[in-house]
Design a protein around this nucleic acid. Structure first.
Lengths: 209, 209, 209, 209
DNA sequence: AAGTAAACGAGACGGTACGTCCTGTCTTCTT
DNA sequence: AAGAAGACAGGACGTACCGTCTCGTTTACTT
């Protein structure tokens, strides 16, 4: 039934003989994203993945150690270059722009279930945990650079260290994203930016009373 | 025959059959915590749970809609009353004390795998998601009260709203807890408290340079 | 202790408490026949039986040791007095009439599934086996009387004993009934009657060659 | 789409995956007979069968539609070639020899529970019913050939048709086998043979009185 | 009339089997 | 050598039934 729908046209994709077949790899990654998008996590089994990609299960296990590894690799290319470092002139503006774009990117129907799956899988699969750590480390590194640039211009609050600010920013995102009590929206991005920077107006507010 | 009579007036008989066995309920909850503690998430199948609790599978499914619901109920009683609201005199002190206790509680070998499981399961099971939302909402409410008390004394930074601070505090916790790149330790509790409060000393620090 | 005293002298109190509810008994037997008729054997579980009869499971187990016992009792009243001993004047005629009626009775939609269930259940449940033996013994007894009456008039073939003839007659019935390759119909009744009796014409046929 | 093409021309791909494992098949059939022999029908669940055969449940369901199908296949090879057609020179002798051997074969502890299970299962499972019909049809065919050979030599009673005789012979067997009021023994074999044949001696007996 | 005891409906309980699905490994054949 | 197909052992899933066990109610008999 849904098998027929999911099943690709494997006859069109010749397999190459010796070396790894790039087409097969792509078919698997595409199928992973498609399954996650259309059926959510429960629909993503290695069995269904092989079926949907028109690939043999052995091929999957040959190249990826676990389901999470497939998801991670599928997520990597897509989510990595998604958010560039903005340059608005002020740290506050940069931060807000960066976080807004980050939050919006994660809301994409192609990305959200992947992040969700990665986070969930990391709680039980050490390999997935490693992948999640690497992935988030990349993202933190980008944000840290942005903050350091602002810090060198004296725009950063001095009483907290940068790593905590990075964790607070991504923490608000992941917390809202995984718990779902409130969306990580543009207003949140604005507020987090405010929290991190020494803004003249807010300092005056603090001194007045 | 007599069925129709009984069903026509069900209000007369509030409960007919044998009532729920409280010992069975406790055995299941205990077994859930034990399995999570000893074998981690993969060891927690409904099958193993029934076996470990000496309960029939039907009993599990009768009272809990999903594995996550068992975990949630097991977690609820234990994790809820764990952290009381402190009163050190200052918001900064209260916050640090509360977060330190919260982080330490979550590090407990009885609690950590439960939280991990709950968060992971919530990503695929709507019922678990609901449970996670309710559980975290309770915790946020406590922290919010703590912050509001400080705010009424003028100890809170005015440029951010309380809900964001709450999300930032718990966000740092969950982010570090789930990703594992850095532990949510006492230092983090201290830094988060600093981030939230208008501390006189730190303001002088900010103005002096 | 006092229990033992009470049990030591039960004769003093012939019956206390409520007596068996005849309506409940009938409801169960009726439900058994109805379930077998409408849903066949797989539909007849003790659970479904209790539900259909509006009876508690305990009531079932109190009065009947097994599912087969219910079926047997339900079958007994109905199937027992169904076939009377005919008297056509000749053994051949009596036999044919008796078997024809027997076969037709067993074909009834109320009876057939009961017999089928009884025979099947007897292969695994000793109690059901006992019931089946008793039930068939009654039927054999009737047929034996019929044959003995014919034998006393010299109408029976002398080279076989009556018990074998009885088994052959019922054997053909049950074999066809349970295997289903051919129905136990009127033609079979006629042929079996022929097989049992010394018919003048057939003897002449045998002597001619 | 390409599936339809593939299904239109299946000759191009004789077989892709791994082929059926003959050892697994044998292990299952052996385990079925062993379980039936040692624990009787209640011990034969698909679950226990898989366990005893060291096979996955999926393997069972892949190759056999039901428990009865396993039993049937296990019975087939063993029971089929067991009884050869004898040739004693007379129909009476052949019949007695054949039936005696048939009865004795069915008494074997390896065979009896299988036949019992097959007969019982056929009363509720249409697939098992079909198997039972096929199995018994084979046996009837053999007996029919034996009777036809005797008929062509004029040894058969002329007033009954062969199919009824076949049903009477096997009927006596199954009736006694399933009900258990009397064993299908050698004496029965002798009497059934007498019932079928025109025996000179017995004719004289009939005429003398 | 009060007391007592059995039968009742309902249904929770510990178990076990069902038939389906997925996991990770292993052939077998094709390209 | 890599891939597609798929068989295999194992085991979890959620459902259903088994037979036993309270519950609280109803009904009859005894005192």
């Amino acid at each position: 039934v849904s098998q027929d729908v999911n099943r690709a046209a494997p006859a069109r994709r010749p397999h190459a003989g010796r070396r790894r077949n790039e087409l097969a790899r792509q078919a698997v990654l595409d199928a992973a994203l498609r399954l996650l998008r259309e059926q959510g996590y429960p629909g993503l089994s290695m069995e269904a993945l092989a079926r949907a990609a028109g690939a043999g299960k052995h091929t999957l296990y040959r190249w990826w150690p676990s389901k999470a590894a497939v998801v991670a690799e599928a997520a990597a290319a897509r989510a990595a270059a998604e958010v560039a470092i903005p340059d608005t002139g002020t740290l506050d503006g940069d931060l807000e722009a960066f976080l807004t774009k980050t939050f919006r990117a994660a809301d994409h129907p192609e990305i959200a279930p992947v992040l969700r799956t990665l986070a969930a899988e990391a709680q039980r699969d050490p390999a997935a945990a490693q992948t999640l750590r690497e992935f988030t480390a990349q993202r933190r590194q980008v944000l840290r650079q942005l903050l350091q640039r602002g810090d060198s211009r004296g725009e950063l609050r001095r009483d907290v260290d940068i790593d905590l600010l990075v964790d607070a920013a991504y923490g608000v995102f992941w917390y809202r994203f995984l718990v779902g009590h409130r969306p990580p929206d543009a207003a949140a991005a604005r507020d987090i930016a405010k929290l991190a920077t020494t803004r003249v107006t807010s300092q005056r507010d603090e001194q007045q009373p």
